[in-house]
Design a protein around this nucleic acid. Structure first.
Lengths: 342, 342
DNA sequence: GCTGTTATTGAAAACGATTACATCAGCCCG
DNA sequence: CGGGCTGATGTAATCGTTTTCAATAACAGC
């Protein structure tokens, strides 16, 4: 309390001021701050001085000198995508628990923005990066030399230069097909996004599972928006009706498309599951509330975020170890929207 | 191209290396980087050298020296709350457009975490902060001396030390009540969150509007979770049924509560709006798809984020100007859930 | 031709911390 | 009692930039 001169920071107070106040050297103050070897007496004096002066370390200076940014980057397409929202929360929790900060970036699947943010990550000298790249950037990523480890999420890695954590997409899609088949559906249409590798994998699983059941696959690809899905499915069903080949079920590869399909059934006056069974991905809270409840694949979103951070920390521990790919399984949450035929 | 020694960064390349490569002083390089006055000849040489060396400026160093962090903080309760998700997206867009970075923090409405993050903001020397504080922290905020401007969002400011942008909550709640009244409902129950000032204001508007119509207000407060809302509304309706005073409509103060109420009507086997009309806040995409569509207040979420950033920039421009409070209006999106009395 | 002004450039001093290194005291042990 | 060791402390170098300041050159005006 020695000099309670009202700690209003007229001028930013630095470690020097603390040192003067405590009558020690700046080195000692620094050591106190980082739990270095300091006698109890001095430690107490310094701590008092810190309180008295209202000192706050300058993280820029600290990072510059110590060469540790204690920052991880998180680059996703859009934080409003509930999957990424949940992942980001998990990443942040893990980061702050480890005393790190998170820089969040939205790319809107735009490769230019991805490139720009990758540059930013370098300039920030991030400790590591968690990244859901587009296919375009994924390809370039191999040639880029980044001086921090990267963990890919959601989008699967091609060769194996990077650690990654993904859902077992083929298996998840198959789960959905198997469920639909078990409920008696035989004409199972598929609607998939046309931008991500995720959709590609889910389509593969869909196709394989149908083949296994000896059924015919009929899939279409659309931009990943509810509007595109709604328009496409309406067109599709109209055609199908004319040709007398109406599907009795449709599965979609993400929740935006799911919304589009549900909307379309409304405007077309179709009942779910009577006229058309519906199933999709991402067990968001509202899927339970729509119509008879929507059957979906639940991704372990929080685990995915956590796993990514774990992978990152392990890589930092041992930069040389073989890259790892963590594959998590989804589970099928069956609801009324696939209630069974007739 | 002079010295294409394969720009693999064996050792981090600094401004010094660029200077050597270009045969100029570091000052000149710095000036090129910041568009300072440099002759065209040298500028070209330096730019080549930058490319050749693969130089990336070190932001920590830059921030330390220039005393500009080019960083804004964003502290919200939980990014998974769709309102904050949307706001965060708007904030980020505005920030990156202005060449700034965003540090995102989730507090879970926990005052301790709020305090810790406020400390972090100081240590990061953020340029400004956008903050949705709890009531507890809001009270303390007046005494705290922060050396950066703060813009409050969602939660309204008490005195006027801070700029803020909020929804006109009383008016929005009244809008909902008026709509319900217009549809013929007369016993309008209200369910509100018990943690935020937002709910308090919405409750006030609810009460005032009912009074204006000569109706009786009956409100309850619950923790802001779907589960709490579901349980409370079930209990409430059971009691009401016994006492013969069933409400014919219920409005709630946010989307989590809305989900809880919808769930409750399902398990109780009530039809919407036949047995009970339902209305709430936040026009999330799924509200259109639930039951006959849910009537909600739509907040201009993106605008709120943008307005907050605008306020922040204006404050940075002129630190002395009077604090401002931007109040935005919600709009009522009428859907089937308030279809009118049988 | 001399001086004053303007545009470029470089040398060196910050920025605010951490940390390598030197110093010194105290202590153990031969 | 001296030598080596340990542990606490201080001095000064350092991190990679920006920015101040001085120096130089070029050029106009008289």
């Amino acid at each position: 309390m020695s000099d309670s001169v009202k700690a209003t920071s007229i001028k930013a107070v630095g470690i020097k001021d603390v040192a003067r106040e405590a009558g020690v050297s700046v080195a000692t103050v620094s050591r106190v701050l980082s739990n270095g070897p300091v006698s109890d007496a001095l430690r107490a004096r310094v701590e008092d001085a810190v309180r008295a002066t209202g000192y706050r370390p300058n993280l820029s200076a600290r990072r510059l000198r110590s060469q540790h940014s204690q920052t991880v980057g998180l680059i996703v397409s859009d934080i409003r995508n509930p999957f990424f929202t949940a992942v980001s929360r998990a990443v942040e929790d893990a980061a702050f628990q480890a005393g790190m900060r998170v820089i969040l970036c939205n790319t809107d699947e735009n490769p230019e923005r991805e490139a720009m943010y990758l540059r930013l990550m370098q300039e920030e000298r991030v400790t590591g990066l968690i990244f859901a790249p587009t296919r375009a950037t994924l390809a370039q990523l191999d040639r880029a030399d980044l001086d921090f480890p990267v963990v890919l999420i959601d989008r699967s890695a091609p060769a194996g230069r990077f650690d990654s954590v993904v859902l077992d997409n083929p298996q998840a899609a198959a789960l959905l097909v198997d469920h639909l088949h078990g409920q008696g559906y035989r004409r199972i249409a598929g609607l998939f996004g046309n931008t991500s590798t995720t959709a590609v994998e889910r389509h593969a699983g869909y196709q394989a599972a149908l083949a296994a059941h000896g059924l015919h696959a009929e899939a279409r690809f659309v931009p990943p928006t509810a509007e595109a899905a709604e328009a496409e499915i309406a067109r599709w069903l109209a055609e199908a009706r004319r040709s007398g080949a109406m599907p009795d079920a449709v599965m979609v590869s993400n929740s935006l498309l799911l919304m589009g399909v549900v909307k379309a059934t409304r405007t077309l006056g179709l009942t779910i599951p009577g006229d058309l069974a519906v199933a999709g991905f991402d067990n968001e809270p509202w899927t339970e509330l729509v119509g008879p409840g929507l059957t979906v694949i639940e991704q372990p979103v929080h685990e995915i975020g956590r796993a990514a951070m774990t992978l990152l920390f392990e890589r930092l521990d041992d930069p040389e170890r073989a890259t790892r790919k963590v594959v998590l399984s989804g589970t099928c949450v069956a609801r009324g929207s696939t209630g069974g035929v007739g």
